[in-house]
Amino acid sequence: MKNHDIEIEITKDGKVHATIRGAKGKGCASYAKLLEQIVGRIQSQQPTAEFYEPDTVVQIKPTIETRQTK
């Protein structure tokens, strides 16, 4: 079993700095996409050496509820 960790820092103006650890290739990209869907817009992304290693398979549900309904 492999752990995928995300270390998140939310600044006092709401900006999010996230570091994804353990996921590689498309798996890492899936998590980046998920964070983008939750938070808003990616301002910058710095892939590391691990990003280019062989893929980790990650399954992310495509839909996210964004509005509260009564």
């Binding site: 900006k15 590689k24 990209a29 998590y31 938070v39 990616i42 992304q45």
Partner: peptide, 18 residues
């Protein structure tokens, strides 16, 4: 480490949530 990302919030939500 896989990736380091900076995200800017874009919020569209209902009033009770905010």
């Amino acid at each position: 480490m896989g990736s380091t990302i900076v995200l800017v919030p874009l919020i569209i939500t209902a009033w009770p949530m905010i």
